[in-house]
Design a binder for these strands. Structure first.
Ligand SMILES: [Zn+2]
Ligand SMILES: [Zn+2]
Ligand SMILES: [Zn+2]
Ligand SMILES: [Zn+2]
Lengths: 145, 145
DNA sequence: CCTTGAACCTATAGGTGCTAGAGATATTAG
DNA sequence: CTAATATCTCTAGCACCTATAGGTTCAAGG
């Protein structure tokens, strides 16, 4: 049996985060010691490690919730799991595309500045007027990694 | 003079967002009509357009706040503004690097799945064990575009 | 056995950048 | 004048935690 601190250390997840996952139903409430402290079986470490790894790969908690419930039904087809992963891959690619457009524009902006006064600063000027931009590709879209 | 709706339409910013910017002190409180509705001078459109563009380029509101107060002092050196832009460029590049690592791992995961049952699904397996990953580069880091 | 200090408990609030809703008032077009 | 639209304030919610406060339990050393 593991205390919440040991569990967190083993999985690389902070203690309040574990409690948060329990609160939103991503981790089942574990048993308690006589003094009311959480005690986790080894299996909880696998589950938390799974969650942590999926978070590291950018999956949203809702997707992880679905993946976990799928992994509890080992006989079923994995099509649903694969679809979730492909969706995530597409989301990551979309973010990369957007960020790459931002990078180009920022790079241009920084490179063109002559390091004089604010009045002649290219950074300030470009920010004030999108028509100075080479690309339209930074139309607002999304967030989060 | 512009109503909040016209201002928002002109700058491509939603009305509640404008009120939010006012609330956090990013936009100065404008005058009001006799019926207590906000009335903006033309200059507010420039300021809001600046904010919108900087947001589109991923600058956090705090950085934009700094950039705006710099742009109010046109005689000063633009070094501080350039530094903010370079910081933003570095942040964008860091996110791209991280997302590119995620992309590679997700791609591998999806490609290796044989489309059988959950029990043999490579997606589920890799998520459960980071040692299946080719790279360590998805150690948690940041967020937001 | 007793004390100390770390780890644990609950509950609440904050952070980022908005967005959505309720319920009331103002303005504008027909 | 009336009806539709736009505005007003206030509050709560989104994702995903993180931090704080104020209290209890546990493990080890003396
Ligand atoms: Zn400059
Ligand atoms: Zn632009
Ligand atoms: Zn599969
Ligand atoms: Zn991995």
């Amino acid at each position: 049996m593991l205390t919440i601190g040991k569990l967190g250390a083993a999985a690389g997840v902070k203690v309040p985060t574990i409690r948060y996952y329990e609160q939103i139903g991503l981790l089942p409430p574990p048993g308690r010691s006589t003094g009311n402290q959480r005690l986790y079986p080894r299996a909880a470490l696998d589950r938390l490690t799974f969650i942590r790894h999926a978070r590291d790969l950018g999956f949203p908690l809702e997707a992880i919730r679905d993946l976990l419930s799928l992994s509890d039904r080992p006989d079923q087809s994995c099509a649903a799991a694969d679809a979730i992963a492909r969706t995530q891959l597409a989301a990551v690619r979309a973010r990369i595309a957007r960020l790459t457009a931002l990078e180009a524009e920022l790079q241009r902006m920084v490179a063109q500045c002559a390091h004089g006064t604010i009045a002649s600063c290219r950074v300030i000027e470009v920010l004030g007027d999108h028509s100075h931009c080479a690309d339209d590709d930074h139309a607002r879209a999304d967030a989060a990694a």
